[in-house]
Structures are given as C-alpha cells and as structure tokens.
Amino acid sequence: MKRIFSMLMIVLCVITLVSCGGKNNYGKVNAKDGKEEYTSNGEENPVAGRSITEFKVKDINGNEVTEEIFKDKKITMINIWATFCGPCIEEIPYLQEIYAEKKDDGFNLVGIVSDGDSEENIEMANKILDKSKVEYTNILMGDSSLKDIVSQFGYVPVSIFVNSEGKIKGVFSAGAETKEEYLVKINNLLKEESKDEK
C-alpha cells in the first residue's frame, strides 16, 4: 500500500511540474532600437508588441475591470496563474510584497486566474489570495480578448508586462521567479518607460 501511495505521489509531482512550468533562465538576446529583448529558456515572448485594448471583465469579487486599469501606471505586470499550480501559489506572497513596495513608483500588478471558469475554482482562488492578504486585482478573463493572450502560453505561471497604453513588452517571465529577479525586470521597465516619457 505504501509503495502504491509513493508511486502516486511521484506521478502527481511530475504532472504538477509539467503542467505548471518550471524554473527558467533568462538571457539577453539582442538589442533593438537600444532596448534589450529577453528570452525565457530560448523562447521569445509570443505576444510581445501586441496591445491589450478594450476588454471588460470581472475581478474575483464581481467588480468590473476594463483596459483603464493600465492607464495611470507606467508598467503593469500581468501574472497568469491557476489554482492547481504549486509554483503559482508559492510566489503570490512575494508578488504582494512587490506590489506594496512598487505601487507608488508607477507600477501595478494584475493577476489573471486562468482556471477561474467555475464557482469552485473562484472560491479556491479567493482562499489562496486571502491567505496571502493580496491587495492587487485578480481578474477572470471570461470570453474577453484576454483569453487570446493567455492561450498563447501552454503553462502557468507566466508574467507579461504592459505599458500605460496596454502594449505588451518583450520582457516576460515563463515560470515562477524570485522576488529579486522580478524586481530587476520591473525596475528596468520603469526606467525605460520614464525615458520614453521625456
């Protein structure tokens, strides 16, 4: 019986790692127009350069959210996660820390609950977010244009970054990162957007 249980646990762990996506390494690939572009495990961001415009969705508390959420911030990090994903849940506490530390610097953080298509999963998402005392907005994509963006990635967590106009930057995170790794990206993007404003 113990042997069967052990085998089941190993299989479950492997499935979870494959489903969620793993740790990643980032490297500078090239410079276009003086701006650095990054890849994740050799991947380029499949949605870089696209714009997220005109959507109307609900957050997990039933409040309406539109593309206006990007408007007053230089950079918004969109963290795509799922309730079944261990690495997604593990990074939520320090994502909240990042949000609290950087929100007054022109930064915003928005979560997309990729499996928020049932009441059961929405309830689970709320429990996960409440446990970490999350203050940043978490939305359900429904049938909005966000669904097309999320569908370009076959794993979670994924984090993409958009400017105040909703344009998706080349820098992205395919898999969970450390707080420090996220802060390097965020600080560089905030500097880049500040230069573009001048």
Rank of each mutant, 00 (worst) to 15 (best):
K35S: 12
E37I: 15
E37P: 03
Y38G: 06
Y38F: 15
S40K: 05
G42N: 10
E43M: 13
N45V: 05
P46M: 08
V47H: 03
A48L: 02
G49V: 03
R50W: 09
T53Y: 10
F55K: 04
F55S: 02
D59H: 09
I60N: 08
N61T: 09
N61S: 14
E64T: 15
E64S: 13
T66W: 11
T66G: 06
T66C: 10
E67V: 00
E67M: 01
I69G: 02
D72E: 14
D72W: 05
I75Q: 01
T76G: 00
M77P: 01
M77A: 08
N79M: 01
N79P: 03
T83I: 05
T83V: 09
F84R: 12
F84V: 09
G86F: 10
P87F: 08
I89G: 06
E90L: 12
Q96A: 06
I98P: 02
Y99C: 03
Y99E: 03
A100L: 14
D104C: 01
D104F: 01
N108I: 01
V110R: 07
V110L: 11
V110W: 02
G111F: 00
I112D: 02
V113A: 13
V113S: 09
D117Q: 10
D117S: 11
E120P: 00
N121Y: 12
N121L: 08
E123G: 13
E123Y: 11
N126R: 14
K127E: 15
L129R: 08
K131Q: 15
S132N: 13
K133E: 14
K133M: 08
V134C: 10
Y136H: 11
N138Y: 07
N138D: 10
I139M: 07
I139W: 04
I139S: 02
